[in-house]
Amino acid sequence: MLPEKRAHELERRAHRRRSIDRWFGRLGMVLTLTTLGILAVLLLNLAVNGLSRIDWHFLTSFPSRRAAEAGILSAWVGTLLLMIVTASVAIPFGIAAGIYLEEYAPKNRWTDFIEINIANLAGVPSILYGLMALGLFVYSFRFGQSILSGGLALACLVLPIVIVATRESLRSIPAMIREAAFALGATRWQAVWHHLLPYSTGGIATGVILAMSRAIGESAPLITIGALTFIAFLPPPALHSTPPFVSFEWLFSPYSALPIQMFNWVSRPGEEFQANAAAAGLVLMVITLSMNGAAILIRRRAQRNITW
């Protein structure tokens, strides 16, 4: 081939490559925005159908056979109480497990096994936690179809999230911090408590918020343990005016929860109930999306404030 012709050919190819790259760049941008657009459409759809239903009455009323009078009082109280149980189990156990695996555990087969086990747990379908809770908590431990059973099921479900977040934020702390602490005579726990935990608070907090947001939106495990019933009452109060002042009776109370209430309304025929479902969905979305947003902000700030 003549030199000029070859040069021309090469230039043509380079040109074509550049235009392919440009096209792919545009395609990627369009697909990214489309995917995010679906989220926007989803929110918009909920808002259009449900926003008019959200008022004080909706937040302070029990579910009802008449769609226009129904509200989410028992649902959001139930969700709140479930989260108290879930958080008080998943957070301490998750953080403890994370610290143990990252800072204490010897490298051996047992540790490898725990590691694989956590990776698998993170991928176990949520409904299986419901089946476990049904067989174990509801029937074997006789907790019944209660807030305690539901909260424990959700705690097991989000445990891996807390563990992984704790481990990752501990792992990102350079070894020199530990070495400096040990050099000054700190025990392992002192190094963890005084140095490593303060540095990893941001990462752990992010993980905990994400875990809670996941738990708030879960409905499958709660349905398997029989939460889908008509609940038009609140669990007994935890505080009393007479001794012993505190009561844990609420733990054993039947309950409803926001996603459960929404599922109930979705599966009913009739546009009014669907409007209720949209309204409940909107409340759920606002809660979970703002928790996720908070988690992102905390992670950003934690990353910005620490320079090793």
Binding site: E218, S219, M262, F263, A278, M285, L289
Partner: peptide, 15 residues
């Protein structure tokens, strides 16, 4: 923002 897609409660997706 993409991660938010997997944070949406699944019952909302069902709806």
């Amino acid at each position: 923002m993409l991660e938010l897609l997997s944070a949406v409660p699944t019952v909302v997706y069902g709806y």
